[in-house]
Every structure is written in C-alpha cells, then in structure tokens.
C-alpha cells in the first residue's frame, strides 16, 4: 500500500503537513513535529521585517473551535534563514514549505526572492491572513485581480513550486483559485481562517483577544473547508493542500475526497497533541485497507466522481 504523496514533483512520506502558523516557529520545533510523524512542515509566515505580533491574549479555544489573532509575529525573513537550515539538515526526507507574507505586493516579491535562496521545497504565498492591517484594506486573496497580479509577480522571481493560500471569506473561492492557476501557481492551499470573529467575556465585559477580532479555525470550520476544497478542485487542475479543522483521520479522508492531495494539520494538535499526525496517517491506512485502496492518490477528489 502506498501512502507516499507526490506533490508538484516533491515526495512526502505521508499526506500530513504541519499547517502554517502552528509550531513552525523554529527549526527545532519543526524537527520535533517530524519526530512525531508529520510528512512535511510549513514554517510560520515571514515578512521582510521583524514583527512582534499582537499582545496577548492571542489564542483561545471555545467549544467547537479556536480563535487567534497572533498577528504574524516573526523575526523577519533575513534573520530566519538559520531555522530553515537547521530543519533541512535534520529532516532531508520531509519537505519544507516556506510561507511568504507582505504588507503589499512589492514586499511579497522581496520576501519570496529571499525565501527562494533558502532550503525550502515549496513556497506558500500567504495572501489571506486576516490579522494584518493590509494597506489595501483586505487580504489579497479576497480580490480576484489582485490574486492574479500578486501570483504572477512572484512566479517571475522563483522556479520553486508555489502554492497560493486562499481565504474562505469570499463568495467565489473556486474562481480565485483558477486565477492563481492561470497566473502560474503550482498548487493551492485552502483554507485560511474563517471570520474574523470575536469573543467577549461577560464578567469583565471586554472582548478577550487583545486585537478584539481574530481568525476562526478548529473543528467548527471543517464543513466550510471541505466545501472550499471541493469548489477549488472543480475549478483547477493543480493540486491542493487542504487545511481547516481537520481533527481526526475521518476528517482527513473527507478532505482528500473533496480534493486535497496534502493535508494541513493544525488544530488537531490542540485536540490530540503531537500524536495527531500519526493518528491521522494510521486512520487513512486503516481505511484504505478496509475499503480496498492501494494508492493514497486514488482517494483524491473521489467525491467528485459520478
């Protein structure tokens, strides 16, 4: 039975990938995720400059989900290079996805140019983080034309595979994915967080997040993620890193049937801790055995077949 995944010509030993924004802060932390069974990792999004992010509280759970407004903290692309090197040296068989962010297209290009020189296998374009005050007033991935323009500009500065990370907070995610594909994207990552949302503590009478609003992830958004991945799969022929509320093996299989080739795992760590990766891969293995599948690739997009 084959659980290896070929994604844009890159080999993953299993379909689970640490999703961006979870634990991908340091090289050592990403190595620890691989020790716990993930097939590959996505590092945290980086801007050109150092960013402190929002003050705490930044991450909260509630029944059904997780809300966060971390605000993309990071040491900046130039200083982060050594973390990628630590990881690539220790985990040569587990691909590394570098996530690129920017306040505008110019910055995105500059960050991508530097990311291109690092030992990353795939470059993910974070066009959809809701926690950044975008100069354009909203994430790039909320606009079909800007998505095309930004993808095309970055396509010109790297030969590595690029995956465009999309926002679910649009009426036409399938069409936006199509524009990214036409602009030269090799893959789509979907979805980023839903919302934004807010939680208020009724006793202190205040929004709990310091940023007041934050993106919603976790098990509650899975049906939205499944629908988005389904729509994208229908509209493009490039592969998809499906992510958003996958909290167990059944969710993972569901997401593959919607059209995901790789699976971004994040909130499952909150529910099952580090064993989440192995648990999900084992469940997929068990399911394939029970249902008579030999190759994991045969699960991808099954829900579209008539």
């Amino acid at each position: 039975m084959n659980l290896n995944v070929d994604f844009c010509g890159i080999k993953f030993p299993n379909p689970t990938v640490l999703a961006s924004g979870y634990l991908g802060v340091t090289g050592a932390s990403m190595v620890n995720c691989v020790k716990n069974g993930c097939g590959g990792v996505t590092a945290k999004s980086l801007f050109m400059e150092e960013r402190l992010g929002h003050p705490n509280p930044t991450v909260l759970t509630y029944p059904g989900g997780i809300i966060n407004a971390i605000g993309l903290c990071g040491e900046g692309i130039k200083k982060a290079g050594h973390e990628f090197k630590i990881y690539a040296k220790k985990c040569p068989n587990n691909p590394l996805i570098g996530s690129v962010a920017g306040k505008n297209i110019k910055e995105l290009i500059e960050v991508a140019e530097i990311m291109d020189t690092y030992p990353v296998d795939i470059i993910e374009l974070n066009f959809s983080c809701p926690n950044v005050d975008d100069e354009m007033g909203r994430p790039i991935a909320c606009d079909i034309n800007t998505t095309f323009k930004a993808t095309k500009a970055i396509r010109a500065v790297t030969k590595k595979p690029i995956s465009v990370k999309l926002s679910p907070n649009v009426p036409n995610i399938g069409m936006i994915a199509k524009q990214a594909e036409e602009a030269g994207a090799d893959a789509i990552t979907a979805i980023n967080t839903v919302g934004p949302g807010m939680l208020i503590d009724i006793y202190t009478r205040k929004p709990i997040l310091a940023n007041k609003v934050g993106g919603i992830g976790g098990m509650g958004i899975k049906p939205i993620a499944v629908r988005c991945v389904y729509d994208i799969y229908k509209n493009v022929s490039i592969p998809i890193i499906a992510t958003g509320g996958i909290s167990n093996g059944k969710d993972a299989i569901e997401m593959m049937m919607a059209g995901g080739t790789l699976l971004g795992i994040g909130s499952a760590i909150a529910y099952h801790d580090m064993k989440a990766f192995e648990m999900i891969t084992n469940k997929i293995h068990e399911f394939m055995e029970e249902e008579g599948f030999d190759d994991i690739a045969d699960l991808v997009g099954l829900a579209h077949h008539s």
């Binding site: 979870y22 802060v25 050592a28 932390s29 903290c73 909150a270 580090m274």
Partner: peptide, 18 residues
Amino acid sequence: KCGFGICGQCCIDGTGLR
C-alpha cells in the same frame, strides 16, 4: 501565547519541546 501547545512561541532549541 496559546498556553496549550499549538502556537510554537515557547519551543526550546535543541529538543524543540514546548
């Protein structure tokens, strides 16, 4: 930040533990 092991802010070098 999170306090429950998902955000990665407090990961320690060497072991990568949270």
